[in-house]
Simulated assay, not measured.
Amino acid sequence: MALLSVRDLHTRYAVGRQVLRAVDGVSFDIEPGETVGLVGESGCGKSTLGKTVLRLVPSADGEIRLDGVNITRLGDRAMAPHRRRMQMIFQDPFGSLNPRQTIRTVLDTALKVHQQGNAGERARRLQEIIARVGLPADSPDRYPHEFSGGQRQRIGIARALVLHPALIVCDEPVSALDVSIQAQILNLLVDLKRDLGLSYLFISHDLSVVRYFADRVLVMYLGRIVESASHATLWRDPRHPYTKALFAAVPSTDPTHRRTAASIKGELTTDIASGCRFASRCPAATDRCRAEEPLLRTVGEGHHAACHYA
């Protein structure tokens, strides 16, 4: 049984008199111990999808199942035990921490809210998690501004781990860090996955990071998943023109790289026309693409793409 199962999920925002379909009919599963990467341009709905899965943003329609339990419409009291099972690491390691709280308060509050152990047990848990993420032993009595950016992200990881979750949504967890620090944080996440049996939904616009980190990759465009496959299959044989264009934008030492791959025309827009929502930017679009929206279909073993010509 899948740890997380999402079916036909929709999230909408009112923007003036218009409705923005940030997540528009997304379905996917995450198995125990699996890392699923979620990639796409800024504004395609990646972060909204992650927050909707965690019930931080209300969904308009669809179903979210955790451990087989439908949590989509659960009230706060019924949802509480499930919140312990899934946590989030945010993009901004400083903005996501309260500057007036010590690290002890940040971590201990989560344990108190969920009634996890007495004072002594909570103190031992804090020291255990501080050591596991590689922070100094005196960290609990210090404030966020006393740490470097990489250390603050380790605090964010500690906060996510303190309740023994099964699933962690990582929302661009290394994009605000220096490249050398990014590698340290990614290696820490890999070690934690191996040691604790964690599952990740790893959101990123950096394809090189996702290639290193993910078992399976979902490509998102304007609220929809347009391609999904194992990371090895996707890099070897991308089928959707948008995926190919994303790969073309990745810097490469190969002098033929940009000549042999298609590039993306225009800019991402929230105006969704009839037909394929990528048609206005696709170099291979036809009249069929502009008139008929393609469905996500199987194009190989474990490989799906929403393109008429995949």
Rank of each mutant, 00 (worst) to 15 (best):
G50L: 14
S204P: 05
V69P: 11
A176L: 04
A22I: 12
Q182H: 09
E267T: 14
Q151M: 12
R216Q: 01
T233C: 07
A14L: 13
H303C: 06
S42Q: 11
D191W: 07
Y221R: 13
F94H: 10
V210N: 00
H304D: 15
A22Q: 11
L222V: 10
L20T: 06
H205W: 04
D138S: 12
V53W: 02
A214Y: 02
G16S: 08
S96E: 01
T243V: 05
E267A: 15
D8L: 04
Q18W: 09
G149T: 02
D215V: 09
S228C: 14
I168V: 13
V219F: 03
S280V: 13
E31V: 07
I272H: 14
H231I: 14
A229N: 06
P136E: 11
L20D: 06
V39M: 05
Y221W: 14
I203F: 03
H10Q: 04
I103C: 04
L161G: 02
G37Q: 07
V39F: 07
N70M: 07
Y200I: 04
S280A: 15
R21E: 15
A232E: 07
R12S: 11
F147V: 08
P241N: 02
T11C: 07
I203K: 05
P294K: 03
G50Y: 08
F247N: 03
V36M: 04
N98H: 09
T243Y: 01
G275H: 02
P283S: 08
T48K: 03
G150K: 03
D24C: 00
Y212R: 10
A291I: 11
G33A: 12
L9W: 01
V6N: 00
D29N: 11
G50R: 07
